[in-house]
């Protein structure tokens, strides 16, 4: 993927499996979000192929427009700067996520306009699904509040709930732990592993918070300057010299700032 003269993601190949949490890490500007935007169709890579093995067949994501990637290939995502529908309620946010199914049930709005039973049932099912995720993410008490009025941590959770309401096969999370306090990010860890184990979606995760990354990832891909510099299970990544170099420069490990070494040792403990 190239922007003018800048090659943001270059010659990158990796695989993310279902029922697994794959983390993508790398220094700022490594091309992580650009990669996400290519996968979810917001950018179109100039060369290369992104294939998704969907239950209904292989989807070539680089050929689909963004909204069809979400609907047909089952790729859902969250955003680095949260993108909710701020003036709509929490519940409405989740209902909008089920637009495609509800639209089909409302038959070009006609069945809905006439208030046919068929549409009412579909709407009830949609509300049930929303309720399920609100319960899971501990948002049920705020269901009728404006999404924009929620505290930051709840907005992050709501964005995940909204993505899950689209019934994805691949869930792409762009820095879900950013701005969360330690307790919240611990809860996030539990939630993500639970989502993986219960629904079997593949989770693709961009994250800087190493406690999250090292704690829950099954597989880690490290990017720098748009290239993959390492790939493997967390234990291997932690020891990889190329990764240490990318993050810390050429300096030796003893120069680690205390926060980082703290992060690393905490991650070791998990």
């Amino acid at each position: 993927m190239r922007f003018g003269g800048l090659l943001a993601v270059n010659d990158l190949s990796f695989a993310a499996a279902g029922r697994q949490i794959t983390a993508i890490i790398g220094p700022n500007g490594a091309g992580k979000t650009t990669l996400f935007n290519c996968i979810t169709g917001f950018y179109r890579p100039q060369v290369g192929r992104i294939a998704l093995h969907h239950p209904t067949g292989v989807k070539l994501l680089e050929r689909l427009p963004d909204h069809r990637i979400a609907r047909e290939a089952g790729v859902a995502r969250t955003f680095q700067n949260i993108r909710l529908f701020p003036r709509m309620t929490v519940l409405e946010n989740l209902i909008v996520a089920q637009h495609a199914a509800l639209m089909r049930a409302s038959v070009f709005s006609l069945a809905g306009l006439l208030g046919l039973a068929r549409y009412r049932q579909a709407e009830r099912r949609a509300v049930d699904k929303a309720r399920h995720w609100l319960d899971r993410l501990n948002l049920i008490a705020q269901a009728d509040d404006e999404a924009g009025a929620l505290p930051y941590g709840s907005q992050r959770r709501l964005e995940i709930a909204r993505a899950m309401c689209t019934d994805p096969v691949l869930l792409c999370l762009d820095e879900p732990a950013a701005g969360l306090n330690p307790r919240e990010s611990a809860e996030l860890n539990t939630l993500l592993t639970a989502i993986r184990d219960e629904t079997g979606v593949g989770v693709l995760l961009i994250e800087h918070d190493m406690t999250v990354v090292m704690g829950i990832s099954d597989h880690i891909v490290v990017l720098d300057y748009g290239r993959r510099i390492a790939e493997g299970p967390p234990a291997a990544i932690r020891r990889d010299p190329a990764v240490i170099r990318a993050y810390l420069g050429e300096t030796a490990a003893e120069d680690l700032p205390p926060a980082v070494s703290g992060d690393v040792s905490e991650a070791d403990g998990c």
């Binding site: 917001f42 609907r71 529908f85 637009h99 993505a163």
Partner: peptide
């Protein structure tokens, strides 16, 4: 409210 979020949820 947010066109980009709409696209990410499969709305055309």
């Amino acid at each position: 409210e947010d066109e980009i979020a709409c696209r990410s949820l499969g709305l055309n």
